[in-house]
Every structure is written in C-alpha cells, then in structure tokens.
C-alpha cells in the first residue's frame, strides 16, 4: 500500500485530559516512599518503558514515576509506578 500522508502534527499524550501528570523522581524520594509503604521497588505498580507517556518524559528502566491523578473521590491522588522493560 501507499504510504499514509502525515500532516506533521505530533501528538503529545501528556496534553490529553485523560493523561495525568507524570514525573520521574530521584533516588532519595524513592527510598522515602519505599520506607513509607514498607515495600521493595519490585512490589510497586509498573509502567512499561515503551508506554507513550514514559517515552515522552524519557523515563528509563528502573526509574520511578510519580503520577498525580485527578481523583473523583479525593480530588488529587498520588500514585507511583516503576518503569519496566
């Protein structure tokens, strides 16, 4: 088939209303969170390194991403995900 014409507009997932804010956090913060929940890194919820948002914020495997969701029940909810391959 013929190649699709692309209008040259790039879609940024983070701009979408359904995508909450994602940010990579540093080692010190990770340790604080792990201590707070009494868990090890591997027990955290995961996000794929190939996830469109992970790509956008340039996360690497082993990073921890803080996600600040708009919650229907609490207005704001903070969530963490470990970046996996």
């Amino acid at each position: 088939m013929k190649e699709k014409e692309i209008t040259g507009r790039e879609f940024k997932p983070l701009d979408h209303v359904m995508v909450p804010r994602h940010e990579i956090i540093d080692e010190a913060e990770i340790n604080k969170i792990l201590a707070e929940y009494e868990i090890v890194k591997e027990q955290m919820p995961k996000i794929r390194v190939s996830d469109p948002v992970a790509l956008e914020i340039k996360a690497r495997v082993g990073d921890v991403v803080r996600i600040i969701r708009k919650s229907q029940t609490a207005d704001k909810a903070v969530f963490y995900r470990l970046v996996i391959a």
Binding site: P13, H16, M18, V19, H22, I47, D51, V53, I67, R81
Partner: peptide, 14 residues
C-alpha cells in the same frame, strides 16, 4: 497504545 497505561485506567473507569 496511544496514550499509555494511566489514560487506559482512566478510560476503564469512565
């Protein structure tokens, strides 16, 4: 596929 896991979660709920 297009917007990632967090959007998928929001969409599931919606």
């Amino acid at each position: 596929d297009v917007m990632g896991i967090e959007a998928a979660r929001a969409s599931l709920i919606h």
